[in-house]
Every structure is written in structure tokens, then in C-alpha cells.
């Protein structure tokens, strides 16, 4: 199957792609709605990441299995139905496990259905690859998204409440930065992380030259 001259992606590459090279939050800047809205605490961020990963895995597997059956003309609608099924499952699951968490995440659990990472993966990857590959890729993407959310959520919780996973870090006198738990705080923290990553990548321009080309292409 390998095209001559092109490097065959190993399973590990496929897995790491979502975590680092094509990280949904820091490189592709996708799924910003939940990334900004629910990341006021580390726990919320991890829960949102886990829920999204579950939906990604389930939909990748099912789309990949049915990739030869789905007619091209209605594929998007079919993907959405598949994704919505898993979102419904996750919705009930979270409500059953922790009602408190369910209320904290609010409408954003149901909104996973329109998360462009999931539809994008179904369209760009799962529908063109065998189930094993699709699941590995989806797992990497899900983990990458979770890491991104956690990076936002932990910083916002540390500054906004002085805690991490609810554990106070600075003692009782800590002065919370109110802005960090407000919507602008989400943008500030996301911007700061993007700045950091871009600066880090551009530090060694020679090494990242080919990677940049790929990235440009994937944006379009």
C-alpha cells in the first residue's frame, strides 16, 4: 500500500501525530469552544478531554468499519449520526457518574457533537484507513486534546483559585485572579501557550522547515 518514496507512517507516528505534531489545541487550534469555555479547572478540563476522546475513539472505529458502505453523497450526515450516538452515551455516562461535573460542563458535553476535531478526523482519517490505524490515530488526537485542555485548565485553576485539582497550593491567603476564570482569562492563557509553542518551534528554523510546510497544507 505504501507509496514509493514516501515514508511509511508507523503506528507510533500515527499515535504521536495528535499529541505533538498536529496537536488539536496548540497546532491546529481546533475545538476552541470547549477549550475556552470549560477549562476553568483542571478536573473539568480532564473530564472534557476524556469525554471527547471517548467520542473520537468510538466514531473513528465505527466510521472506519463502515467506510466502504457509506455512500459518498451522505457521508457527512452519516458521520454526524454516528458521532451523536456516542455523544449521547457520554452525556448519560457523565450524568450518572457525577451530577456535579455534569452541571459544570453544561451544554458543552452535548456540543461535542459539533466539535470539528471529531468530524475532521472522521472525514480526513477514519474514512480512509483500516480500523486499527483509525483507532490509534483517534487515541493520539484525543490525548493531545486532553493535554491541551489540561494545560489551559491547570493554569487557569492555579491563578484563578490558587488550587490544583482542588488542593490549595498557596495557603489560605491566596489572592485569586478573578480574570482567569472569566472568558478573557481563557483567551489570555490560550494565547500565552500558543506564543510559547510558536516561539519554541521557531527557535530552530532549520529543523522545523519541512514540518511547517505540512502544517500550512493541513490548515487549508
Amino acid at each position: 500500500m505504501a507509496i514509493p518514496g514516501q515514508k511509511q507512517l508507523t503506528s507510533m507516528d500515527e499515535f504521536l501525530e495528535g499529541i505533538w505534531k498536529q496537536n488539536p489545541v496548540f497546532v491546529m487550534v481546533l475545538g476552541l469552544c470547549p477549550a475556552l469555555a470549560v477549562t476553568v479547572s483542571a478536573v473539568n478540563a480532564l473530564a472534557m478531554g476524556a469525554a471527547t476522546t471517548f467520542v473520537l475513539l468510538g466514531s473513528a472505529l465505527l466510521v472506519s468499519l463502515m467506510r466502504n458502505v457509506i455512500p459518498k453523497e451522505v457521508r457527512i450526515a452519516t458521520y454526524i449520526v454516528i458521532i451523536a450516538t456516542f455523544v449521547t452515551i457520554v452525556d448519560y455516562l457523565i450524568a450518572a457518574i457525577s451530577l456535579e461535573l455534569y452541571e459544570a460542563l453544561g451544554a458543552f458535553i452535548q456540543l461535542i457533537v459539533v466539535n470539528c476535531i471529531i468530524l475532521g478526523r472522521a472525514e480526513a482519517h477514519a474514512s480512509k484507513h483500516a480500523p486499527g490505524r483509525a483507532v490509534i490515530n483517534a487515541l493520539g488526537m484525543g490525548l493531545g486534546f486532553t493535554i491541551g485542555l489540561f494545560a489551559l485548565g491547570s493554569v487557569r485553576e492555579i491563578f484563578g483559585a490558587g488550587t490544583l485539582f482542588g488542593v490549595p497550593l498557596f495557603g489560605p491567603d491566596f489572592q485569586p485572579w478573578v480574570v482567569m476564570v472569566l472568558p478573557p482569562g481563557g483567551f489570555f492563557v490560550l494565547g500565552a501557550w500558543l506564543l510559547l509553542f510558536n516561539w519554541w518551534r521557531n527557535r530552530k528554523p532549520a529543523a522545523s522547515e519541512p514540518a511547517n510546510v505540512v502544517r500550512e497544507a493541513s490548515h487549508g
Binding site: G162, F170, G171, D173, F174, Q175
Partner: peptide, 8 residues
Amino acid sequence: LTMPLMTP
């Protein structure tokens, strides 16, 4: 002179 990060 509040300590950094602490409530005045």
C-alpha cells in the same frame, strides 16, 4: 508590602 500572590 503584601507578599506576592497573597490577598492584601
